[in-house]
Nucleic acid binder design. Structure first.
Length: 900
RNA sequence: GCCGAAGUGGCGGAAUAGGCAGACGCGCUGGUCUCAAAAACCAGUGAGGGAAACCUCGUGUCGGUUCGAACCCGACCUUCGGCACCA
């Protein structure tokens, strides 16, 4: 390519960009959107009347954490679809509750405050106000009279009340748990600890130490959390993930006596392999480790435990890593054969599961096998692998089979043996049938400032004393120094006049609990507060909650599939048990919206360093990402120096294509609704988000589609305002056009209604709105516009598009002569008899391959179709010289000749 | 490693009871308009062959079931998400 043509192309690109960034809208979307938003707000049109007689519908988006970055177009992939449903339900006669609030406590706010020197109470309010502005900008109709903020005393008073409810019911308790610790920062959250043993601020020497912390006994609800999933309209994968997280497994607890007369309980799912247990393994944290370690092995064991405290659970339990362990010097007695077996300590056994100890059966467990081989421990086969020849195993046989080498039990099947061994253990007091769960109790303590204070007072005489309900809330004191302090734990410990109080029971001096509640507590009940957001004497109104719960449609990211949703279900069940609510589950239907990733692009080779399929910035100034590999191409975003990309294809001409991945501030690739709304308007953003893909799909942002949405709006605008005039290509009569218009409108209503019900917004816009408008435009004339049928078709389309483009619909509705808001209008009906064509194209196949189509009357019978088909030249040609051995006729669909 | 989901034109996607693959939109190509461009409008746009009628191929790969498979079955590959030796 010559330099001249290259230059021309570059110039052309620039011209194209400048123009393509402007909406082709033929109406003043800014004026229209402002006009209607103002009116909606003046008329409080989204305010929910909880006392209404209409049937209720409660839609809810997951409680957002207000961050300084503002909302991105990705967040709106959740909010816009939910808003559309809300409008649809309202038009169908439901009283809709669609509230919004802020999950404002949490670690990021505190860190943000440390970085910027501002108090989180102040910054979260500002960030929340910005979120609210953005939501309104896009026309999301929330009932702002119900706005709540979890970090305000008015809200967290009731979070504390809920804590006390759990405490009262024996579901909140304190115990020691190993917690990541940094000698500079104090307690660390899991995500603050990096794989290399440093923390996020770069301190090395991070380790785990035991801390007294608060827990909720969610394990008591394990079975119900699995069983009650059955009746929920939730994505099946999400249910499966919750079930797996709870991780119920059946087996037996077996007691092993030790030589020094201790007793170790182990949980096993394979009691049938008990005769093959050749050693025991304790977690490094197991309470008997000290007792069992003989003097000779003391140093080894101590060193091993110290090392284990610096390793993460992932590291300890990863299959990629070699198993390690140390011998304690002690032995236990196998209860079924009195064999003396060594007791080891190994970090692949976790203290948090089962009893923190296992019986190792190397012949029938892959991990135990590897461990036994490494440390030269006995491997004793007790389940015969198929065709086993008594030779030593080369790998563990983990399947079921015939029991061997097990005294009286030999010859049984695994299943039968399990029953009999457990019965024998139970008879001798050496064990019992048992069920174990992967689920652990919920650690709720945070050694942080910015959270809900735990309403407990520690009294030297009375112990842990709940703060009486009448004294709630325990106000989080206003402090300015919330930097972590490892010598005192939480920064709250430094607030002497807050910490020092009197015991509510005995009146003597006592200290307040300084741990705060993790954010999951606030989001475990907020859906109830929305029902009675300003009620002063209870967390929620019982009668209103009975009416408005459960949430009919709950939408949020799949990343919350387990923790948040499990915790919220647990709290709700506690409330159920306490008689506060008569429903067992809080969220009837759940959907996940997919993630919107940053737009993929191209980077200059000179700007990047490449290491095995990954590219990173080559200079401290970061790297520019462009739309296409051309000089003068549009700059998508500027990524910071720490940016990393996946390379998505081969370099060419000095450019490399990259995948942008998730939107994040550090990558500099967050697209906000503000810029899109400014250039194209809120309705275009809404249209694109609904149209671009199914709600659940994860895909990169690409605003190319905005032009298409704007053109669609232009077309309907033109039809309604008369600017479109007449389609000069159309040569059908006015009579035919009237019939067609009615049919198109009825089909549109049917399509939109079905797709709305099943939340398929992309096909609703494509086939329920765009296609009908195209069809109308094809037959449109000024005469048709003046007919009843023409008018009615337009009105139906306007109603159907109002959940998608409420501002434009409102304006067009007014121009059609209506004085009441389209939001309050009724969703249109359709007449099924008018949605179908009288004629249709019947597909004619020979041996399953389409050879022709014929236009026939609806309901044509096989004989008539066959005789018509046999006259078609192409069919005759394909049947020539063949024998029809069978015909297959599918009514109003196809006719298939099967030939030899 | 285990669990789950998904692979369809240049791109996002559609086909929701096994029955016309590619709806709708973007992009692209040609045309109209224009001094020229943009916008708008019209036409075309899976690949290959053919003047055309049409024909062949085509939904990650390889097999299978069926008159007929994007869809059902088996094996495999790839990508994404989740979980981490759970005894």
């Amino acid at each position: 390519m010559s330099s001249i043509s290259r230059l021309k192309k570059a110039e052309w690109q620039i011209v194209k960009q400048m123009t393509s960034q402007k909406s082709p809208a033929r109406y003043d979307f800014k004026a229209i959107e402002q006009k209607w938003q103002k009116r909606w707000s003046q008329e409080n049109i989204y305010e929910c009347d909880t006392g209404s007689r209409k049937p209720k519908y409660y839609t809810l988006e997951m409680f957002p954490y207000p961050s300084g970055d503002g909302l991105s177009v990705g967040h709106f992939h959740n909010y816009i679809p939910v808003d559309a449903v809300t409008r649809y339900k309202r038009m169908n006669g439901f009283e809709v509750l669609h509230p919004m609030g802020w999950d404002a406590f949490g670690l990021p706010a505190e860190q943000d405050a440390i970085d910027k020197g501002r108090h989180p109470a102040e910054s979260t309010l500002e960030y929340a106000a910005n979120y609210k502005r953005q939501l309104n900008l896009v026309g999301c109709g929330h009932d702002w009279t119900r706005e709540i903020n979890s970090s305000t005393p008015a809200y967290y008073r009731w979070t504390q009340w809920m804590f006390l409810l759990l405490h009262k019911r024996g579901l909140a308790y304190r115990t020691e748990k190993m917690q990541w610790w940094c000698d500079t920062c104090g307690a660390l959250a899991d995500e603050e600890v990096l794989a290399d043993g440093t923390d996020w601020r770069g301190h090395s020497g991070v380790y785990k130490k035991p801390l007294m912390q608060w827990f909720f006994k969610i394990t008591e609800y394990a079975d119900r959390l699995i069983d009650d999933l059955d009746d929920l309209d939730w994505p099946e994968p999400t249910k499966r993930m919750q079930t797996n997280w709870v991780g119920r497994s059946e087996g037996a607890d077996v007691l092993f006596k030790t030589e020094n007369n201790n007793s170790i309980s182990v949980f096993t799912t394979r009691p049938d392999t008990l005769f093959g247990a050749t050693f025991l393994v304790l977690a490094p944290e197991h309470p008997l480790v000290d007792d069992l370690t003989t003097e000779e092995h003391c140093n080894n064991v101590k060193q091993y435990i110290d090392r284990a405290s610096t390793r993460s659970e992932i590291e300890r339990t990863s299959t990629a890593n070699d198993k390690t362990g140390v011998f304690t010097g002690s032995y236990a007695i196998n209860p079924v054969n009195d064999e003396k077996i060594p007791i080891w300590v190994a970090d692949y056994v976790l203290a948090s599961y089962g009893s923190g100890a296992i019986m190792a059966v190397p012949a029938h467990d892959a991990r135990d096998f590897a461990f036994a081989q490494k440390y030269n421990l006995n491997i004793h086969v007790v389940i015969s692998p198929p065709d086993w020849d008594d030779a030593p195993l080369t790998e563990a046989y983990v399947g079921p089979g015939q029991v061997v080498n097990s005294s009286d039990f030999s010859g049984l099947t695994s299943a039968e043996c399990q029953k009999q061994i457990v019965a024998k253990l139970e008879a001798n007091g050496q064990g019992n049938k048992s069920i174990n769960y992967k689920l652990r109790d919920w650690l709720i303590s945070r050694q942080r400032y910015w959270g809900c204070p735990i309403p407990i007072v520690h009294c030297p005489d009375c112990g842990e004393v709940p703060v009486p309900e009448k004294n709630l809330p325990v106000i989080l004191p206003h402090i300015t120094d919330f930097t972590p302090d490892p010598t005192v734990g939480s920064p709250l410990k430094r607030v002497d006049d807050w910490v020092n109080t009197t015991c509510p029971e005995c009146g003597k001096s006592a200290e307040r609990e300084t741990d705060t509640l993790g954010g999951f507590a606030c989001s475990s009940w907020y859906y109830l507060r929305f029902i009675s957001p300003s009620l002063a004497n209870a967390p929620f109104d019982r009668k209103d909650a009975e009416k408005w719960m459960p949430v009919d449609l709950y939408v949020g990211g799949a990343e919350h599939s387990v923790m948040h949703l499990l915790y919220a279900r647990f709290w709700f069940k506690v409330m159920y048990d306490a008689g506060l609510i008569s429903y067992k589950e809080p969220f009837t239907a759940l959907r996940h919206q997919g993630m919107i990733l940053a737009q993929d692009g191209w980077v200059k080779n000179t700007d990047i360093k490449v290491v095995s399929e990954r590219a990173s910035a080559n200079s401290p100034h970061g790297v520019d990402v462009f739309l296409s590999p051309e000089a003068g191409s549009k700059l998508l975003y500027h990524a910071g120096a720490k940016a990393e990309f996946d390379i998505s294809g081969p370099s060419s001409g000095g450019w490399t294509p990259i995948r942008s991945g998730k939107m994040s501030k550090s990558m500099g690739n967050v697209v906000t609704p503000d810029s899109v709304v400014d250039k194209f308007g809120a309705d275009c953003l809404r249209g694109l988000e609904l149209f671009m893909a199914p709600m659940e799909a994860t895909l990169p942002w690409n605003e190319n589609g905005l032009n298409g949405i704007a053109r669609f709006y232009n077309k309907i605008w033109g039809l309604v305002t008369g600017e479109f005039g007449s389609n000069t290509k159309s040569n059908i009569s006015l009579e035919q056009a009237r019939t067609k218009a009615t049919q198109v409108a009825n089909q549109a209503v049917k399509k939109c209604t079905n797709d709305m019900e099943s939340l398929r917004f992309n096909t609703m816009v494509a086939n329920g709105l765009m296609e009908p408008v195209n069809d109308l435009a094809a037959i449109w004339s000024t005469e048709l516009a003046n007919t009843h049928e023409g008018r009615e078709a337009l009105e139906k389309i306007i109603l159907l598009m109002s959940p998608v483009a409420p501002h434009l619909a409102e304006e067009l509705w007014e121009r059609m002569g209506h004085t009441e808001s389209v939001i309050l209008a009724k969703w249109p009906d359709f007449d099924p008899s008018l949605t179908q064509d009288q004629s249709l194209f019947l597909v004619i196949q020979v041996n399953g391959k389409v050879r022709d189509r014929i236009e026939v009357e609806k309901g044509i019978v096989e004989e008539d179709a066959t005789s018509l088909a046999l006259k078609m030249p192409n069919i005759i040609a394909h049947l020539d010289g063949k024998t029809v051995i069978r015909t297959i006729f599918v009514k109003d669909k196809l006719l298939n000749f099967v030939v030899n």
